[in-house]
């Protein structure tokens, strides 16, 4: 068995997930909140691929690809919202986005 055990991969994935969760809660810039969401999704992806290797079945990798597609969709909609905020001259700050209309 080359390299560390699967559990170490899971620990790194969990750490990335927790850092991303902290970023979503800490930051007010919606762009950085979206980046932190990407971090959370990638932590989950790493765990999925580690489990695919553990069980020797490609189902986890298929799931990881699905998560990538969902992340791309989420980025499209989130960035669309940020562009709409910038176009309506709303300051890029989620605390000021308490209503969806100016």
């Amino acid at each position: 068995m080359l390299g560390p055990a699967i559990a170490w991969y899971l620990v790194v994935g969990s750490a990335i997930f927790a850092i991303g969760a902290a970023g979503v809660m800490l930051r007010r810039n919606p762009l950085i909140m979206l980046l932190s969401l990407e971090l959370m999704l990638n932590g989950a992806n790493l765990v999925l691929i580690a489990f695919a290797r553990l069980h020797n079945s490609p189902g986890g990798q298929v799931f990881a690809l699905a998560v990538m597609a969902v992340a791309a969709a989420e980025v499209v909609v989130g960035l669309g919202l940020v562009v709409a905020m910038a176009r309506r001259k709303i300051e890029i700050d989620v605390d000021l986005l308490s209503r969806l209309r100016k």
Binding site: V12, I16, I19, I32, L35, L39
Partner: peptide, 10 residues
Amino acid sequence: ACIGSALAVV
């Protein structure tokens, strides 16, 4: 690199 860059993102 993973943990460091994740911390840097936040």
